[in-house]
Simulated scan of single mutants.
Amino acid sequence: MRRNMNQEECKALLGQNYIGRLSYLSGGHPFIVPITFYYDPDTHSITSYSSEGHKIQEMRKNTAVCLGVDEIASIANWKSVLVQGTFEELSRIDAKHMLHEFSDGVKKVIATIYGEHP
């Protein structure tokens, strides 16, 4: 049965995953790349980490981004959420703090998925 997920189900799907696909624009063309992310349910924000490269350079120019996350059990049993947002680059102490939050968050999600305790 196909149906739209409600907002709480979408947040839960984000919180239970750490791999998604980031979409951004470059030269009027869409690009989609896999990323590791962490969804913070307290701030309703998504954090990821990337070194300098094409996507960072292009997101600095056009901050409109999109993140797609799927859970696919079978061809008839899947969930998908698409989040539109704005790229924000952090630096210095803010970046260091969020890198720690990102790392801890991803570890907790992985531990939950695989039945381990962080």
Rank of each mutant, 00 (worst) to 15 (best):
M59D: 00
V81S: 00
I110F: 05
H54W: 01
A73P: 00
V69N: 04
M1R: 02
L13R: 10
G68T: 14
T112E: 08
Y114T: 14
R60C: 01
H44C: 10
G27P: 06
G15I: 03
L99F: 05
G105S: 05
K108N: 11
G20W: 07
Y114F: 15
N6L: 05
Q16R: 10
N77S: 11
S45T: 13
R2A: 11
S50D: 01
E101T: 13
R92E: 15
G27A: 07
T86N: 10
A12D: 11
A95H: 04
I19Y: 10
M98G: 00
V106G: 09
F37L: 07
Q7T: 12
E9N: 05
V83W: 02
A12R: 15
T47K: 06
A64S: 14
H100G: 03
E52W: 09
R2H: 10
C10I: 12
H44F: 04
W78L: 05
A12I: 09
K108R: 15
P118K: 04
M98Q: 14
C66M: 12
G115P: 02
H54I: 02
F37V: 03
I46G: 06
H44R: 07
G115F: 00
T112M: 12
R21V: 14
L22K: 08
K55P: 04
I32L: 15
H44I: 02
Y24G: 08
K61R: 15
C66T: 09
N4R: 11
I110Y: 09
C10P: 01
S23A: 15
T36M: 10
I113P: 02
E52Y: 11
F31R: 13
N17R: 14
I110K: 12
G53L: 00
A111I: 04
G105M: 03
I19H: 07
G53F: 00
H100M: 06
L13A: 07
Y49V: 14
T112L: 09
S26H: 05
N6I: 10
R60Q: 13
K108P: 00
F31Y: 15
K107T: 07
L14A: 04
S80E: 05
D104G: 00
Q84G: 10
D94F: 03
K61Q: 15
E8I: 06
M1G: 09
L99I: 08
K11A: 14
D104Y: 06
G27W: 03
F31T: 05
E71K: 13
L14W: 09
T47F: 14
E8H: 07
P34V: 10
S50C: 08
